[in-house]
């Protein structure tokens, strides 16, 4: 079970969180023209990366904040966590 540092609550066990997918995907702005390909990429197409990966988690049973977590998908090592408002560097 992972041990995740919530930027608001501190170190918490994985069972307080829910996983939310790739944190680098940006939703196209509402009201803009989006090509079929771009839309497909946004809705469906994800890379299953091996290695460092920025992903979203929600601290569901805690502060309910969505956070960004940089995790190694092969080793589960967590390098950094960010608030939703902070940009992935």
């Amino acid at each position: 079970m992972l041990y995740i540092k919530c930027p608001y609550c501190g170190m918490r066990s994985q069972n307080e969180f829910s996983y939310g997918g790739d944190a680098t995907v940006k939703r196209p702005e509402l009201g803009t023209e989006v090509s079929d390909q771009d839309w497909d990429n946004f809705v469906y197409n994800r890379k299953s990366l091996r290695g460092k990966h920025w992903e979203l988690w929600q601290h569901l049973s805690g502060c309910r904040q969505w956070i960004k977590v940089e995790r190694d998908t092969a080793t589960h090592e967590i390098f950094k966590t960010l608030k939703a408002s902070e940009e992935v560097s």
Binding site: L56, Q58, A84, S85
Partner: peptide, 13 residues
């Protein structure tokens, strides 16, 4: 609720 929180926190802060 999670859905609304997602958009409010990440997409339309």
């Amino acid at each position: 609720l999670s859905h609304l929180e997602y958009y409010l926190q990440l997409v339309w802060p």
